[in-house]
Design a protein around this nucleic acid. Sequence first.
DNA 1: CGTAATTTTGACTCCGCTCAATTGGCGTGG
DNA 2: CCACGCCAATTGAGCGGAGTCAAAATTACG
Lengths: 251, 251
Amino acid sequence: MQATIAIKPAVAGTAPLPCKFEVSCAGCNFRELCIPADVCAEDLPQLEKVVFARRRVRRGEALFNAGDEFKAIYSVRSGFFKSSVTDGEGREQVTGFFMGGELLGMEGIGTGRYHGAATALEDSEVCVLPYALIEEMAREMPALQHQLHAILAREIVRDHGVMMLLGSMRAEERLATFLLNLSKRFTARGYSRSEFNLRMTREELGSYLGLKLETVSRLFSAFQKEGLIEVQQKFVRIRDIAGLERILREN
Amino acid sequence: MQATIAIKPAVAGTAPLPCKFEVSCAGCNFRELCIPADVCAEDLPQLEKVVFARRRVRRGEALFNAGDEFKAIYSVRSGFFKSSVTDGEGREQVTGFFMGGELLGMEGIGTGRYHGAATALEDSEVCVLPYALIEEMAREMPALQHQLHAILAREIVRDHGVMMLLGSMRAEERLATFLLNLSKRFTARGYSRSEFNLRMTREELGSYLGLKLETVSRLFSAFQKEGLIEVQQKFVRIRDIAGLERILREN
DNA sequence: CGTAATTTTGACTCCGCTCAATTGGCGTGG
DNA sequence: CCACGCCAATTGAGCGGAGTCAAAATTACG
């Protein structure tokens, strides 16, 4: 269930993060989900010069915080992240969860500073994509340029989906939607479609879904009682995908 | 209150929409809000070749619909739009409202099709920015490239604000936030900060705010009773901005 | 001017929140 | 290894905010 990708360790005594690793987009599991998608084979070596470093982030640590200077976009190499924004009154809203191949930090392009924060929910590793270099290379590689635009647009589409969820759905529809979405993303990465460990707490999930943690907990219990899922703390097994989909159908 | 920008009418008998107009970004009121921002003076003439047409959209008409082929980004020249997405069960979620200088349709870049719809809420006019041309020119004009990225990133930041609103705020906070936001945007365009006509129905506003139309109506009445605003149907006068801000403070 | 659409308002309901107590899991240190 | 403490998760009881249903008022528009 864990992403166990063997990483060449950094040489002992090297500079602090970000450290330089041997990196190969060509051999990366997430190639077609990440920036290199659609970039043709002969351009790949050049792209790999851009993805010049990886960075480890331990569970609970921030990849970046709101207000930090924007220098890079990050691609999740392994592990799991949440992104969140905080308003003037200190309320935190979780805006998304990110797993292998998904990109974080694009929001900073406009202002030169990250707008929200990204936090590792388990020990993780990311590829560092320095924005200045990406931008420069995009001018010479139309496929990269287009892919970058597509990634930004995809994030907008994703956000609109969340707005639909928060604005139009009832609590149980929100959780069903979330479980189905998570299942799909795990499947796309070669994990089980029906069994996984949640990396976030009930509170973080509640924030994302616009619900209180108690409501999330109650919904999990209710879904279990109806035979839709099995839950035990962070572990979830989906027993009836069609049943979850039916929750969305019936209004 | 109305944006009354004189437009050279298209020659009678020309081709159907989009029609060719005389266009000048240099002289546009929304220059610094739109794509041309930061594009230096000598590059402007070239950019104006890209913004090759305008298109009129009458009240109630769609600028584009979900699933339409993505060919252009649109900049609102005059009028007012809503954007919305519809899910499998036919539920509509309003994802935003757009006024002069704001951009619509970026979401289509990734898939080649618009993901949601954009509908004029009053007789409107947009500048048509053919995406293929923009993309091409961005390769030669770093400022344009950066501006395009910034615009996409700004939309993501905006969406995160809406997620905060929908996920963490109570009904009256949502409406107060909306009114303050609208006031700020009108102010930035030279209109009154405190008096304006809403272009959307209570139902559309409710969809955007994740509320039912009756709730929106009741909140307007309650705000009026508290002396925060005056409302009469679509007309709104803000009487106490600090009072609206206080609603957000007191959680 | 008449009809439809939108908005307002009221009465009642119920979903999700609040407050509170309990249970369970897990790491740490005796 | 077990006891302790801490944090996460579960569960219950009661409440309240927003939804639902319904009717009336107002406005828009052909």
